[in-house]
Amino acid sequence: MSKELKTGIIAVIIIVISIWGYNFLKGQNLLDPGSRTFKVEYGKIGGLTKSSSVTINGLKVGKVDKIEFDRSEEKRGHLIVTFIVDNDFEFSKKSIVRIYSPNPLSGSNLAVIPSYEGEMAVSGDLLEGEMEESLFTSIGERLNPLQQKIESVIVRADTLFSGVNRILNDETIDGINSSVSNLAGTIADIRKTIQAVNSMVVDNQENLKITLENTKNITKNFSKVSDSLNAVDFNKIISKAEEAVSNFNEMSKKINSGDGTIGKLINDKRMYDNLEAATRELEELLRDIKLNPKRYIHFSIFGKSPEPYGEEIQY
């Protein structure tokens, strides 16, 4: 055998050993023809990684081979986990592959919950998956909304305190101190006023007692007046008032219609004109008597007849 052939054989052996070692470190045993591959789809994997352990009833039977996204339109964003089972233990297609965490400090693993009903699972089958909600996962999911609310409250409180700090400057604090001092003075004045009022009440206690007695008597008198008013027949008074108003309205109607002397005097224009003419003539007569009294009052010893009436011309 030539030296070159020996070198080639050694190189091939080294390459094969390297490939086997690399896959062995990944959890794949190329020398084991009984390995089977299964797939599971999850919405979230909760810290599951490549080379995570796969167990059946607590016994390690394989490892996670790869994790990739689902490329279909309906389930875009879901994750497809491919794992290898080295054990020849058989279970049906109804078995469930659960993601669980052995303890809070370690990563997640896969646990096959075997079912023996129906058709047995073969390499390449897609199994049903679920995720175990551990105590820490449940607490974390409940604390996440609470954490967001607390952070929001902290931000608002920080904003509030910033506003308070801007308001409570030295000038504002001095003003508050001054207001508190003024308030204390006002309270002291109010106390003095109350003490003075109390002293005045004590000093005038007898007068207040007399005033209350007078008030009581006045109330009794008002009560008597009220009884007297209750005894008055207001209905009768109102009836008589209505009757008087009715008579007045009837008289007004007669006057407006021209019935009677007053109605004719008010409504007959000729009577008004005659009265006006008579008044005017009476006024002229009185004026003439005043100016020419000899014409109306005549004394004659010798029997001289009076002069005939003639209107004098006034200048």
Rank of each mutant, 00 (worst) to 15 (best):
S108Q: 06
L135H: 07
I99C: 11
E141L: 10
E74D: 10
F83W: 10
V85N: 10
L143A: 07
G77D: 13
V64G: 03
S53F: 07
V122W: 00
F136N: 06
E73G: 00
G46W: 06
G46P: 00
L127F: 11
E128Y: 08
S72G: 04
G118A: 13
S138R: 09
E151D: 13
D65Q: 04
L48Y: 08
K66S: 11
L126V: 05
E117L: 08
V153F: 10
R142V: 00
E119I: 01
P114G: 02
E73M: 06
R142N: 09
T49R: 14
I113N: 07
T137W: 12
M131D: 11
K50C: 09
E68K: 03
R156F: 08
S52K: 04
V54D: 15
G43D: 14
P104Q: 15
S95G: 06
E73Q: 08
R156G: 01
F136E: 15
N144E: 11
S53V: 07
E119F: 04
T49H: 08
E130M: 06
D86V: 02
S123L: 15
G107K: 07
R76L: 02
R156A: 08
G124C: 05
G77H: 02
V64A: 04
K75V: 00
I84R: 11
G43L: 10
I139P: 01
S53M: 14
I154D: 12
I99R: 06
I84T: 08
G47N: 14
F89Y: 12
R71V: 01
L135V: 07
N144R: 05
I84E: 13
M120R: 09
G140Q: 11
G107R: 04
V61Y: 08
G129R: 06
E128A: 10
V153E: 15
I45E: 13
R98E: 15
E141A: 09
I67R: 05
